[in-house]
């Protein structure tokens, strides 16, 4: 990894929201490490925009970054960033929240990270209703390690570890979040970035465990192996396979097979973990 600006691009004018990012502040130039056509760049930009529009006090909304393709995202994220181990973000965020209840950790996960190795922490974080935001960047594959089968890979896809296209049933993270007890749930894709921004703003003001999934194309790993080699192929594949939640209500389960139901799935209020803990602490103070 190099920290010098690409040759000939030293004087490049940064994107209006680029000035908010870590790398710009540290190095004076914007810098990303994403593959060509990856959807994660636009997600990072959306997050930067929300931070700027909402004028957030950066240190109160720390990002918890785990291990995955998006691990290099901090270069294009605003705010303070704590990187943790593969899949442990929600457990770390629980400790952070309990140690300083003023903070609202934003944990960013990939699909392998949240739905494979860290599923346990995801379920229990949602059950406890820790006041935090979980963003799942779902690219349907293990990108960084070379395109292996992920728990979200659609049935019958070709990956490095499924050369014969055998299929395991993919996990539905929204349904998992619902039954686990998350209080704000939404799912978007890379073609609905404005809705994602609205959802993210809502989650910032929501008290409780907010979960937002965003389905992204991966031309390099998923696309190349599954005849979607260009960014737009993957983008359109996801777009055409997405159904709005109000339309999905009238569709049969047969029609919904393999579709992403996008929209706001849940928005309820429930006492958070800190509400309960502080209640006990306050009660014992009187004694």
């Amino acid at each position: 990894m190099s920290y010098s600006a690409p040759r000939g691009k030293e004087n490049i004018t940064p994107h209006p929201y680029g000035t908010n990012t870590q790398m710009y502040k540290l190095m004076g130039f914007p810098f990303t490490m994403f593959c060509k056509g990856c959807g994660y760049g636009s997600i990072a930009q959306a997050i930067c925009r929300v931070f700027k529009e909402e004028n957030l006090q950066e240190e109160l909304f720390p990002f918890i970054i785990n291990i995955g393709c998006y691990s290099s995202m901090p270069t294009v994220l605003p705010g303070k960033i704590l990187m943790t181990l593969h899949g442990r973000g929600i457990a770390v965020a629980t400790g952070v929240k309990m140690a300083n209840p003023k903070l609202k950790p934003i944990s960013i996960h990939g699909d392998g990270d949240l739905l494979s190795i860290g599923t346990n922490h995801f379920i229990h974080g949602a059950r406890r209703n820790v006041d935090m935001i979980v963003i799942l960047l779902n690219n349907n594959i293990y990108g960084m390690t070379g395109g292996q089968h992920a728990p979200t890979t659609p049935m019958g896809s070709k990956t490095s570890t499924t050369p014969y296209r055998y299929g395991e049933k993919p996990i539905d993270s929204v349904e998992l979040a619902k039954v686990s007890g998350a209080t704000y749930i939404a799912r978007w894709n890379t073609s609905t970035m404005r809705e994602f921004m609205k959802s993210f703003k809502k989650a910032l003001h929501h008290k409780g465990f907010s979960f937002i999934e965003i389905v992204s194309q991966c031309p390099t790993q998923f696309g190349n192996k599954n005849a979607l080699p260009k960014a737009l192929d993957g983008f359109n594949f996801i777009k055409n396979n997405s159904v709005r939640i109000n339309k999905a209500k009238d569709m049969s389960s047969e029609e919904l097979k393999g579709k992403y139901i996008i929209g706001e799935h849940l928005d309820i209020d429930r006492p958070t973990l800190w509400d309960r803990k502080s209640e006990i602490i306050e009660k014992l103070k009187e004694k």
């Binding site: 442990r88 457990a91 770390v92 629980t94 400790g95 952070v96 140690a99 903070l103």
Partner: peptide, 17 residues
């Protein structure tokens, strides 16, 4: 916590805070 892995992760989180 849900297991020891989560316990020690939360401890690191609280310490860093």
């Amino acid at each position: 916590m849900e297991d020891e892995i989560a316990s020690i992760s939360a401890v690191v989180g609280a310490t860093i805070t």
